[in-house]
Design a protein around this nucleic acid. Structure first.
Lengths: 110, 110
DNA sequence: GCTGGGGCGTCTACATTGTAGGCTAGAGTG
DNA sequence: CACTCTAGCCTACAATGTAGACGCCCCAGC
């Protein structure tokens, strides 16, 4: 059997948000990325819990780093999506696309 | 019963599969649609449980109907996505798109 | 350098969603 | 009538989503 497991809905959002930030994926920035793009609030608990679970699954990794554009000198976590995480994201995306194919007329209207 | 903002990953798949079948959305056909397009197995339990939960939330509705292309004479359920269900699907889709914007280069490669 | 405030990350706890497989009932077949 | 087949139900549990309280560390003010 193939890796049948799909990512959860929020997990996908987090991975996408990290990718959006490219090299600037400090936790808080990632969180704000989700909040502004998806127009929803993200509690710290929800955010870090999901991040930690994905770390355990090997989908994300992080390293301590000094933020450049802040007066704050402390180290912060800079996240990145691993190759496995990217693969899982693609698998979910592919499945979703295959199921959406040909439905644009139904889904676009408003 | 808090009106959760976003649909789960499997819920989205089920809604999309129903839409794919248009007027022929008998339960079994919907299930096969998911299995073939998403390349995964869907147990009856998982399928009907999700369907029932979405019925309770008002995202899908069904009516008994006689299938046309079968020798079986019994009535079967024909499902449809309600206006609310479609709205929820669009909301999830929009959020996902906003988060994916500009990442095609990262996501497409293989 | 002690202390208070605020941002960063953890922990606990619970709600919602995802999943499998056994069970039941009713229709077809002999 | 038993005998099979299968659509849909029920139970049970795993995984994911979510919030808020808590603790720690850095900086500013004393």
């Amino acid at each position: 059997m193939s890796p049948n497991q799909f990512l959860g809905e929020f997990e996908q959002m987090v991975l996408l948000a990290i990718l959006q930030r490219r090299d600037e994926a400090f936790a808080l920035e990632v969180r704000r990325e989700i909040e502004s793009r998806a127009e929803r609030t993200v509690s710290r608990g929800a955010f870090y819990t999901t991040l930690q679970r994905m770390e355990e699954k090997g989908y994300v990794a992080w390293s301590e780093d000094e933020p450049t554009d802040r007066h704050r000198s402390g180290m912060l976590r800079r996240y990145e999506v691993t190759a496995e995480g990217l693969g899982a994201l693609r698998a979910s995306r592919d499945a979703f696309r295959a199921l959406s194919r040909g439905l644009d007329d139904v889904l676009e209207a408003s």
